[in-house]
Design a protein around this nucleic acid. Sequence first.
DNA 1: TTACCCACCGAAAACGATTGCACAATCGAT
DNA 2: ATCGATTGTGCAATCGTTTTCGGTGGGTAA
Lengths: 340, 340
Amino acid sequence: MKKITLKELAEVLNMSVSTVSRALSDHPDISEGTKKKVKEASVLYNYTPNLRARYLRTKSSGLVALILPEYNMFFIPALMKAISDVVNEQNYSLLIFQSDDSYEKELDIIEYCNQISVDGILLSIGTGFDHKKDLMELSTGGAPIVLLDRVWPNERISHVSIEGEKISERAVKYLSDMGHQHIIGVFGSMDLTITKTRHKGFLDGLKDFDQKVKGKALIIEADDDVENVLSKILKENPETTALYLMSDEVAMKVYYFLNKNGYRIPEDISVLSISDGTLPFLIHPKITHFYHSPTEIGRRAATILFEQMKSNEPSVQDVRIECELVELDSVKNLKEAAKG
Amino acid sequence: MKKITLKELAEVLNMSVSTVSRALSDHPDISEGTKKKVKEASVLYNYTPNLRARYLRTKSSGLVALILPEYNMFFIPALMKAISDVVNEQNYSLLIFQSDDSYEKELDIIEYCNQISVDGILLSIGTGFDHKKDLMELSTGGAPIVLLDRVWPNERISHVSIEGEKISERAVKYLSDMGHQHIIGVFGSMDLTITKTRHKGFLDGLKDFDQKVKGKALIIEADDDVENVLSKILKENPETTALYLMSDEVAMKVYYFLNKNGYRIPEDISVLSISDGTLPFLIHPKITHFYHSPTEIGRRAATILFEQMKSNEPSVQDVRIECELVELDSVKNLKEAAKG
DNA sequence: TTACCCACCGAAAACGATTGCACAATCGAT
DNA sequence: ATCGATTGTGCAATCGTTTTCGGTGGGTAA
């Protein structure tokens, strides 16, 4: 069916455009009778407003942008679903962009977002992000920005991420409680704030136990030969009984290594990870992990964004999501084993 | 920096808006001198065109929609990346929607797309899709539609998918070549055309070998207890030497089962799958698979969509992507084993 | 001088909606 | 009969562009 404009609709109704417009938006000035007539005709003639034209007057485009460093298989799909849900609930639609971890592209995309006048921006910053530069200049296009997941801790832009430091400390404590005294923590790229935070928390966690729990941290950069670095560190630390894995990506690499080299989980070595809750259930044995909820992060960030879009005096918020420990089958309880 | 409008820019330049507009778009009517002046001023005053306003004139929105049944961890991220790349190359932006496998929602989303006047739609249909209904009415909003991946074979709307029938036949042949004579094919939900096609191909492939290769097909529906159905069928067919897995989702479930029950790959049982090329490298041993490229599908579909958007007399295309066999470590060569 | 062409530029009408303001009609009150 | 208030509508401006259609002014040819 062909689209009809407000003007055409007004013509067939033999009324003025303004009356029709007001009738459709339930303006109190319009009588019930004409409202009814107009509404009936609008469905009859299949009228739908042209959102671009409306925008030009009202200054709202109904568009929210999500900018991601990359689309990976973990975390992102669920994050997108959560965001997409709240955006659609609000009758907005979601644009997505990928920055390929480049600061340049991040700037370009935000510039473009300003041009097409999106109403709000959700940004997960990439490894290329330049912390020294002033991010503030970006938001001045008008649309508020909320940082999520991979954030840059600051005091001017709202951000929501998971509590990364405490989680690593909790991990150390949990492993210690289960009797593990020699732990290796495996981390991803140090370019990410998220890695730094988790790494720091791991070391701090070890300090809490003074000498009772010993640990090493292994950083795996993108171009490292995982096979090599892992077998090296395990050889150097044969007393290791547990691994702490900071993400699903890291976990995947480590599982491959362990499987290939005949390590049994948890008989030979225990594993504790941070995960978005998909992977741990897919491999055998199911992996004990801290549940890092993409859904929660997505919903919170999107909700905050809409708050900021509505208020004219937005307050900057710093939200840290707590992770929940999900105990499955990959951590051996050495204390009970010793007893039994 | 504040945004400036064309009118304001024209004022500071002491020229008319039309001249400025033309100068910026390199219209031949404008002299090089004024073009230069205008362009310099435009960067000086940080002018960027308001695309919403432009679209109101030009009847285009610069928006392309991608409608997916769900955001899963396999396939979708890479598919999105590919599509996003070509869309951005064309200076369009990508809207994404999820239909949650509901036909209702698919209709709603397309209706909404018409309202915001997207210029083109990429649709991967969900299990809820009603094949009996007429999809044609949808496209009449004006924007062309291209179906991708999960398509509905028809003659009115372009679609790009992978060659699903031939691939199953090739799988049977390959396994037979490797000496396997008892195969179980594992499939997902029969609601999907893609499943039906692969399933049919599998049965046809078996027929080709008459009685020399025997096979069973196992359909796993969403609410099935995988553990149960798998152990049952393996018990009933103890002579089975190879499994054919139609997707990463199915593969993940089967791996879990095999690992848990102590089957070694490929010593105890061989595995061949269809995959987007991520998972097979993440688990040990690496899985021999037919590479079902999300990138290829995404690029082709998006490219076709843009062709249709540009041409006023679009031809409907039916593209089937060939899959490439990637031989890794999960299929045992029984013939060589017998010789050796 | 007249006529005509060409290279440049401007005025103004779209595009499709929202909205402040004026105005017409009705009615009760004076 | 006149005035004010009330109710329901329409006119016209506006948002920021693009684009059609003319209009200058100078140069060249007749």
